[in-house]
């Protein structure tokens, strides 16, 4: 009985610490968003992938729900940026996606790098939307995550993909806002607000 009680106390302490830690993280992230430079985003928008995961199709759906004037091109090229005011890139490696596109990881990395370079030279701001959680972290995904994160002006990330603060660290280093939400369905609202 005594052991059982002790276990409960330890468990409660762990839960409390976990909750405190979570609130601290949310506060820190909110503070990070507040103190970073606010960026204005305009339409029309081009949505593209970095790694050819199907996540880009979910972002397309989210953008549509937010009534954004957005076009989605999975393998966008620099020429597709003509007339575009904002570029949303959805990073995440998918061997299935690359296979369907008939390209290698190296081909994809080169394409994305060229697209990012072109957007930067035309001063088209990039928004990173990482919605795939753990499924789009580490392995082959992080090279794409880092490339887009380091060139983004704003990041919207599902919390599971940031458990190791990968995106928090990039946001801090680049002094850009990072918005972290719990579920994919919650990424639409902050995206919509960026264009209001």
């Amino acid at each position: 009985m005594h052991n059982h009680k002790t276990s409960n106390i330890i468990l409660n302490n762990i839960i409390m610490r976990h909750i405190t830690l979570k609130f601290s993280m949310v506060f820190l992230l909110a503070a990070l968003s507040f103190f970073t430079v606010a960026q204005t985003f305009q339409q029309p928008v081009l949505i593209s992938s970095a790694g050819q995961s199907a996540d880009v199709k979910l972002v397309k759906m989210l953008a549509s729900r937010e009534k954004l004037d957005a076009n989605t091109i999975l393998m966008a090229k620099p020429s597709d940026l003509e007339g575009i005011k904002t570029l949303i890139i959805v990073p995440g490696f998918s061997s299935k996606g690359l296979g369907a596109a008939g390209i290698s990881q190296e081909d994809e990395m080169n394409r994305v790098q060229e697209l990012v370079n072109a957007a930067n030279s035309k001063e088209i701001p990039i928004i990173l939307m990482h919605i795939g959680g753990n499924a789009r972290r580490k392995g082959q995904s992080d090279a794409f995550n880092a490339l887009i994160g380091n060139n983004a002006k704003h990041m919207i990330v599902v919390a599971q993909g940031n458990e190791d603060n990968f995106f928090t660290d990039i946001a801090s280093a680049k002094n850009i806002p990072l918005e972290v939400v719990e579920k994919i369905s919650e990424t639409g609202a902050p995206l919509g607000k960026l264009f209001q």
């Binding site: 995961s53 199907a54 199709k57 979910l58 995440g92 998918s94 795939g132 753990n134 499924a135 789009r136």
Partner: peptide, 13 residues
Amino acid sequence: DATLAKLILDNIE
């Protein structure tokens, strides 16, 4: 698990 989560995302369409 991680494998199923990834496959759901990959095949969401």
